[in-house]
C-alpha cells in the first residue's frame, strides 16, 4: 500500500522481490545498492543465516527525485526463498505496491520456479490481492550460466500468456544486465497504476 506523508512531502512505495531459494533476490538488491548513487540510498538491512541465506528479509531504502513536490522513496524487500519460510514470506508481502518475481534460469530449478510462482499467488490471495491486477514483473536471472534454459521455456512455465513484462538478467555479471531495467519497469507500473486510480 503506497504511503503518502503530507507533512514530510513524501510518497513511499514498497516493492517485494519474490522467487525460489537461491534465485538471486538478495543479489539483485545488493547489486542495486552498489549501483546506486550513495546520496540516493539508505542502509541495506540483511537478515541472513550463517550460510548467507535470507532468514526474514533484506531491506533497501532508495530516494528518487520529487514528483509534483513529493519525494519518491522506494522500499525494496526480498523474501526468504526456501519453502519452509512460508510464514515469514507471507508477512513481507503485506502492503506491497509491486512485486518482482525472480526466476532461476537453470534447468535444475525449473520446478522450484513453478512452485514459487504458485506460492506467490496463494500469498497474494491470502491478502485479497490478484496477480493480474497488481504491478508485477518477471525477471529470468542467471542468463549467463551455461545450464540456463531457453527464455521461451521459462516463459511457457511462468508467463505463458505473455501478460507480464519480463526481463533477462544476470545479477552477478559485471554491470548486472537486466537488474535496473526490472526495477524501473515495476516502479513505472506502480506509478501508472496510481495515476489510473486517481
Amino acid at each position: 500500500m503506497s504511503f503518502i506523508n503530507y507533512a514530510q512531502r513524501e510518497i513511499i512505495l514498497k516493492i517485494v522481490y519474490y522467487g525460489p531459494g537461491l534465485c538471486g533476490k538478495t543479489t539483485n538488491i545488493k547489486f542495486i545498492y552498489s549501483g546506486t548513487n550513495p546520496d540516493a540510498r539508505g542502509k541495506l538491512v540483511s537478515l541472513e543465516t550463517k550460510q548467507e541465506r535470507t532468514l526474514f528479509f533484506d531491506f533497501l531504502p532508495l530516494s528518487l527525485p520529487a514528483i509534483r513536490g513529493f519525494k519518491t522513496r522506494l522500499h525494496l524487500y526480498s523474501v526468504p526463498g526456501q519453502l519452509f519460510y512460508s510464514a515469514s514470506r507471507k508477512l513481507i508481502m503485506k502492503g506491497a505496491d509491486g512485486v518482482v518475481f525472480v526466476a532461476d534460469s537453470q534447468r535444475a530449478r525449473k520446478e522450484a520456479n513453478i512452485i514459487s510462482m504458485e506460492d506467490l499467488k496463494e500469498n497474494l490471495q491470502a491478502y485479497g490481492y490478484d496477480i493480474d491486477k497488481i504491478p508485477f514483473v518477471i525477471q529470468y536471472n542467471k542468463r549467463d550460466l551455461p545450464t540456463s534454459m531457453p527464455v521461451e521455456e521459462l516463459r511457457a512455465d511462468l508467463n505463458p500468456d505473455g501478460r507480464f513484462a519480463d526481463f533477462e538478467a544476470s545479477a552477478v555479471a559485471p554491470g548486472g544486465p537486466g537488474v535496473f531495467e526490472t526495477l524501473k519497469a515495476v516502479v513505472k507500473l506502480i506509478l501508472v497504476e496510481l495515476k489510473k486510480t486517481k
Binding site: 503530507y6 546506486t36 540516493a40 532508495l62 527525485p65 509534483r68 535496473f180 506509478l191 495515476k195
Partner: peptide, 21 residues
Amino acid sequence: DLDIFGEITDDDIDSLFNDAF
C-alpha cells in the same frame, strides 16, 4: 488534495531514474 499522481507524465516517470542509478 490526494491527486498527486493525476498529472504525471511518462517523461516524469522516466526522469525519476536519471540521477539515482
